[in-house]
Design a protein around this nucleic acid. Structure first.
Lengths: 207, 207
DNA sequence: TATTCTAGATCGAACGCTAATTCTATGTTA
DNA sequence: TAACATAGAATTAGCGTTCGATCTAGAATA
């Protein structure tokens, strides 16, 4: 399964960007299948359809590829929470969006890479720094969203209480990554509904 | 930080078992710090206080060490859920035990290894098989416990509904492993309390 | 327009290193 | 002395990375 580049490129800059993206796509696949340390440059280069040496024209070293993959993965998470905050009726938006988000989290292929990233963060300070910065941003956004919902429902929470609810919500979501690996046979749609109920309850918890 | 063996051994069998355990302890430490593939036999042997070659008298290969670590880690989980089921007032037992369990899950060192195991399960069929078998047992136990609690409260759930609640409960718990890595600064005690509230709500959800 | 030039793209061999595993020799103990 | 524990060197394979040689496409020139 080789990743090729079919689109023509006017400028050399866009060509280089496409080549970089090609490498990242191949690397993501390898990292998913073999982990960060089990995936070799040789294998990545084969899937990307270029020589091993050539990869070093686009990335300083393997660590840089890992960093780019991690940053790219977290960027989608950041835009997602930002979108959520922009919704008008926030409570319904959150709960409706949740079902969609749950199904995303339950996709085994993407879950494998996300879990690999956190595992790497637990031991690689460079990755940990990227992951924690992104997580802090997500938490801040989510805290604002939840704070607004709770205030609208007449609750007057301390910042700490809001932060705790954010943690529980995040745990619920991220836990699905592990669940879909441990139990690939779970019923995704029904679990999504249950999660919606749980989020609903969480938003009504006493302060 | 070398792991030595101070206790005397009468039989050669117990000595061998102790040596095996010594290797597993060293391996667990290495796997936590460097991951399954980043940890070398050389490093493990140094921490276990023996030569690299000697490790092969106790384990067929590195894969076997990984398998033993995974099995050992999951065994503690199995006994924990079994204990839970044995409690008399199940609902209070579950919720009280939960706080303790949450704090366990939030220990960063043990979380790193547990996440590493799931990441490995996502790509290594041998590890996946061990992990999934243990998970199935846990789910069965938990389903019985939750089923009893719900019936006592007058609910008449389908097996599927019970299974879904088990999944949500499991996601909530396992999500904490990822949370403590992504946000090491979270307040463990307060989050534990919030989780207790969430479990309480979960047990009162409509069927 | 045809030819030459050139800078970046690309390859693949080569390097040094470290991994997992095997083997042989030696120590230890009952 | 026989069996097992242990060390450490040897083996083989694969890793990340570097480097010099080619190729190629478009700019410059005639």
């Amino acid at each position: 399964m080789q990743i090729t580049d079919s689109t023509p490129h006017t400028t050399e800059a866009s060509r280089a960007a496409a080549r970089r993206q090609q490498i990242l796509a191949a690397a993501a696949q390898c990292f998913r299948e073999h982990g960060f340390h089990g995936a070799s440059i040789a294998r990545i280069s084969k899937i990307a359809g270029m020589s091993a040496g050539h990869i070093y024209h686009y990335f300083e070293n393997k660590e840089a590829i890992i960093g780019a993959i991690v940053a790219q993965d977290l960027e989608t998470l950041l835009t997602l929470t930002a979108e959520l905050r922009a919704a008008c009726n926030v409570r319904n938006a959150l709960i409706e969006r949740a079902a969609e988000g749950v199904l995303d989290q339950l996709d085994p292929a993407s879950a494998a890479l996300k879990v690999e990233i956190v595992a790497e963060a637990a031991r690689n300070p460079r990755v940990a720094q990227i992951v924690r910065a992104a997580d802090a941003t997500c938490r801040r956004e989510l805290a604002v969203t939840i704070g607004a919902i709770r205030r609208a429902a007449g609750h007057d929470d301390t910042p700490a209480a809001t932060a705790d609810m954010v943690e529980v919500l995040a745990a619920l979501f991220e836990g699905l990554l592990l669940r879909t690996i441990r139990n690939p046979d779970l019923d995704r749609r029904r679990v999504a509904q249950r999660i919606q109920l749980a989020i609903n309850d969480l938003l009504d918890q006493p302060g």
